[in-house]
Each structure stands twice: as C-alpha cells, then as structure tokens.
C-alpha cells in the first residue's frame, strides 16, 4: 500500500482553500475573500500576490496600501515555508498538471521523452522578467491578463465561461506535450516563488544511509533536478524550485526522506 499522506493533505488544503474562496462569493463568508491577486483573511488581514503586484507597479501606477502590505505578508510567509509550497499546496492548476503527469506515467508517455531544445526549466525565469517588461510596455499587468491560475480560480468562484479552455490547454500540453511543461518550465509565478523561497526554513531532508537507490522519488518528483543528492549525500533539498509537495516522502519505502528544519549553517 502506497503512502498518500502528503498527497491527501495537499489535496485537502487546495480544495479547502478553493472552497473558502468560493463560499466568500456564494454565501458571503468572511474567512478568505477575493482571489490570489488580492485576498482578505478573516475580513481583516490583506494578502496579495507579489508577482502580480510587481507587474502592476512596473506598469507605472501606484497601488493601494492594502495590496502592498498584503504582498509583503505573502512574501514573508513563503520565505519561511518554502516559496513553491504555494504551487503544490494552494494553486488549483497544480491539480490539473498533477493529473496530466499521473496519466503520463500510466500511459507510459514518458518513455518517449523528447529533448525539447528550446524549452528549458530556466525558461520560466525569462518569462517572469519578460512579464514585467511587457507590463511596462503595455501598461497592464501582463501575466494577469493570461494567467491560467487566476482564470481557473475565478472560474471556480464566479463561473468559467470560455476561460475553461486555457485550463484544458494546459492539461493537454502537460499530457501530450512537455512533461511538467507548465509548472516546471513556463509558469512565471512559480519562478517568482522559487526565488522567494530560496532560503526557506522547511525543507525535505535526505538520509543517504537509508536510501536503497530505488529512484521512486525521482520518478514522481515534478522538479527532479532538485533531488541531485539522492543516494549521494545526506543533505537537505535546498533548491528553491522544490515545491515542498512531499510526494518523494510519500513514495519512499526506505524512510530516506522527510520534512525537517533546514540546518542554516550546513546547508546554505
């Protein structure tokens, strides 16, 4: 029996948060209102997406204080828990791309992995910077105009309309196009959170002595370049691209992986 602890915890968190956002509109709950762009926690604490805020600012207009404070709070939070914890624990697109990835494994599409010459994992950082430049040129938050993340979130809260097509497009791209194509190569929001979470405290730690080199973790990991230490060294996964999803911990049969507090002296 495979261990699904973190997978189920993540799904519960993702769906739970989406339901709170949905209920804010549908039933007038004041627990978590708004969308990722800007939210209100308990009708009081402002939260805002730092990358969206940065785009809006680079387009040349000053924003309200609530958004600026909210973006700061989010940055501080993810600096501690690992920036890309947003990607695997909060973002609804993660459920779409995880499904595509799971189907890829079931249909054995990965065997036919092609070398995508143009599409590298670092592409997302280019897109992130490009998003700010385009925002400055066009005068609107450029990624927000096309972001499948908030399109999906607003779809859940206010109704999808034709917006569902971009969600399907990402599913198809990840399933038949590039493995981990959206989250692992293109998404500029994930890139921003990678940078925010560079030095985060909560990290996956590898125990080299217990590892039997079965490679299950590398098969399941959506960012498996971060697991370079497997069966080599007993250190933490310090790469900001790790989403702290915990799937590697779930699939490990040898207790060689687990969440821990980063050893600031040794691992930095």
């Amino acid at each position: 029996m495979k261990n699904l602890k973190y997978l189920l915890l993540r799904r519960a968190t993702q769906i739970g948060l989406m339901f709170l956002y949905f209920a804010a509109n549908a039933y007038g709950w004041h627990i978590l209102e708004g969308t990722f762009g800007s939210s209100k926690l308990f009708g009081l604490i402002p939260l805002a997406d730092p990358y969206t805020t940065l785009q809006a600012l680079s387009a040349g207009f000053l924003l309200g204080a609530d958004v600026l404070v909210g973006a700061l709070l989010i940055v501080l939070f993810y600096m501690i828990v690992g920036g890309r914890a947003f990607c695997s624990w909060v973002c609804p697109i993660n459920m779409v791309t995880d499904l595509a990835n799971w189907l890829r494994r079931k249909l054995k599409l990965d065997k036919e992995e092609v070398n995508y010459r143009f599409l590298k994992r670092r592409t997302r950082y280019w897109i992130m910077v490009l998003g700010l430049i385009v925002s400055a040129i066009v005068g609107i938050a450029a990624f927000e105009a096309i972001s499948p993340i908030t399109i999906m979130q607003r779809g859940i809260i206010f109704g999808f309309g034709a917006g569902i097509s971009i969600v399907i497009a990402i599913f198809l791209f990840d399933l038949f196009g590039v493995k981990n194509g959206w989250c692992g190569h293109l998404c500029p929001l994930g890139a921003a959170y990678s940078i925010i979470g560079q030095k985060s405290i909560i990290r996956v730690k590898h125990n080299h002595e217990a590892c039997t080199n079965c490679m299950e973790c590398k098969i399941v990991c959506p960012e498996n370049q971060v697991l370079h230490m497997i069966n080599k060294e007993s250190i933490s996964v310090t790469d900001g691209e790790c989403t702290n999803c915990g799937r590697c911990i779930d699939v490990c049969n040898d207790d060689a992986l687990g969440f821990s507090i980063r050893n600031l002296n040794k691992d930095s």
Partner: peptide, 17 residues
C-alpha cells in the same frame, strides 16, 4: 483602472452579498 485593478473580485463579492 486596467492596471491598478488587481482583479481580485472583492468588489463583486461585496456587491452580491
């Protein structure tokens, strides 16, 4: 407006509720 609006939907939620 197109830039400063952060597209959060708080206004629409306040309106309907």
């Amino acid at each position: 407006f197109l830039d400063v609006c952060i597209k959060c939907g708080l206004c629409a939620e306040a309106c309907v509720n």
